[in-house]
Design a protein around this nucleic acid. Structure first.
Lengths: 336, 336
DNA sequence: GTGAAAGCGCTAACAC
DNA sequence: GTGTTAGCGCTTTCAC
């Protein structure tokens, strides 16, 4: 018992048993006498002993840990998805190792590498910016599931996402029902999710016979991008804005109000995602809500299953988003 | 070379060298001939070899990993602090293992235990709800630093926080300068940070000779709590609201506007924290801004230092918050 | 019930 | 430069 952490040997010595017995007791085996068990428990407490997960995982060749990559911690969407993942995974006795992508896509790869070195048994990617080749390589040696994207098909890799095209159509339908036709879409930039939402917008507009009103303004998924895009969109005096995500929608609303127009009296705004945390529910934003925690839970379930069935065929699950009508959309008013 | 992951032995065999040499090469030693190094590099690539971090950390008795507990992933404040931590820690070749507290304080303890089993070399607690005794025990066996709180003094545990009392006074001073006297404080509930902010409010009000106007309405740190507290506060027709944090302030603003009062024309609202991500900057909230990323960076620095100086005396560092005037506070208007 | 012994994948002396 | 050896702390047969 040096200055460093007590080991299983220290416990064994102190309890006057062999370390095998300590190991058995620690893992709750029934074949340990009550007397021994008690002495072991006492020794553990007295020594402040704590199992060394590294040694343990080396011995059992399992880490009981899954890695989670979260693209952007600042977007509440991802935090909510993570909640779902954590709940599910914990229930099955797994820990999570979490890393966040950050600005640099290259870092993302490095971080995943770290995760893999720690022998995580699976990977949940809550959004990502990895090329297909990298994804393929990763999925080939560790059970992987991606959330919010399903654009890249990789063998043995699952995905859970909402149908962005359908969701976007929901948004447009809602606005059309309110009487709008000059509906501009502020898109989310160059990423598959945003593309899908823009596609859904175009599709729905066309179906409503509004194809001549189709206008997509390049935007992004942050509030600042939403603000800028809205400023540009205003030039064509739209009566409604369908914004690529909630966060950008918040920026768009600010832009509208800064132009002395009111939401929803002058312009209706609808977002996408259904973020509800960090104070945003009170923003009263009409939106297309994804079942975020469910997305996470489902992803975790697929992963847990895949850990035991490495070669199961890829499942690409879609969950549906729903229209949540709140205060930023309203019936079209005939201008005075 | 079975179906499982290649080991250093596989690499050694394939490269026709000993595993020690592989180990040396992998850690970039100069005492490996170019020829051998090349063969090793090739073998690694061909086999798709990846170091086993568990085995490695067992052998070197270092994990090069620090654990980060983040109280609530949904509060943008914490995500920003985390950014600072990650940047600093990465620069020094450490990885982070991140866990989030969640609803149950008991889970927090369990999660920290997991972290410790993974032999993290240090712990950064971005807020927490741990009792002093637990904190003391933790800090006793692993370098620990807590961010945003400094209420509990523990030997060998550092803290980095802003001076909430001073910050709260900044807020009150600002409102007083704008002519307000009926300033109500919506507090953040039962936690040390909120208590300090409330204390600062009382202090400042008293110093301005406004002690008869002191009114603290019980609230909380979420938007819903802010909303509810504001509703209650409105009964005494205040002209300004100082809210415990930004997220709650957003809720408060919604409550004010729902009462057909305008911000800041009828009521000024000031928050605390200075969250700027997730779309909130556009909310145009006047606030007391903490240097969030700096908080994280400093915390990481202390921890890194402490890893090499376990018994260094505890440092309790304070950084100052600043008043950021935006659009939710305004000069008091004499009511018509 | 309990202990001895082998081994998980790796690093770190130490010899050559 | 390179290989041998001895662990790191743990689990897991396999005897007894």
């Amino acid at each position: 018992m040096s200055t460093s952490r007590p080991t299983i040997n220290d416990v064994a010595t102190r309890a006057g048993v062999s370390k095998s017995l300590v190991s058995l007791a620690l893992s709750g085996s029934t074949k340990v006498s009550d007397a021994s068990r008690q002495r072991i428990v006492d020794a553990v407490a007295e020594l402040g002993y704590r199992r060394n997960a590294a040694a343990r995982s080396l011995a059992v060749r399992r880490s009981h840990t899954i890695g989670v990559l979260i693209l952007d911690l600042h977007n509440p969407v991802f935090a909510e998805i993570l909640d779902g993942v954590q709940i599910e995974v914990r229930e099955h006795g797994f820990s999570t190792m979490l890393i966040s992508g950050g600005a640099d896509p290259e870092l993302e790869r490095a971080e995943i590498e770290t995760l893999l070195q720690f022998q995580v048994e699976g990977l949940v990617l809550i959004a990502h910016r990895l090329p297909a080749s990298v994804l393929r390589a990763i999925a080939a040696d560790v059970p992987t599931v991606v959330v919010t994207r399903d654009d890249i098909a990789v063998p043995n890799m699952d995905s859970v996402s909402n149908d962005d095209v359908a969701g976007a159509r929901l948004a447009v339908n809602h606005l059309v029902e309110l009487g709008h036709s000059r509906i501009v879409h502020l898109d989310g930039g160059e990423n598959p999710v945003s593309h899908a939402r823009a596609d859904g917008y175009r599709l729905a507009m066309t179906q409503h016979g509004l194809s001549e009103h189709i206008r997509v303004v390049p935007g992004g998924l942050t509030d600042a991008k939403g603000y800028a895009a809205a400023c540009e969109a205003l030039s064509s005096s739209p009566t409604a804005l369908f914004v690529a995500n909630d966060v950008a929608a918040i920026g768009a609303i600010a832009a509208v109000e800064n132009s002395n127009l009111r939401v929803p009296e002058d312009i209706s705004v609808i977002g996408y995602d259904g973020i509800s945390i960090g104070g945003l529910r009170r923003l009263n934003l009409t939106t297309i809500a994804q079942p975020l925690a469910d997305l996470g839970r489902l992803a975790a379930q697929h992963m847990l299953y895949r850990i035991n069935n490495r070669t199961a065929p890829a499942v690409r699950q879609h969950v549906s988003a729903t229209l949540v009508i709140r205060g930023t959309t309203g019936r079209l008013k005939t201008r005075a």
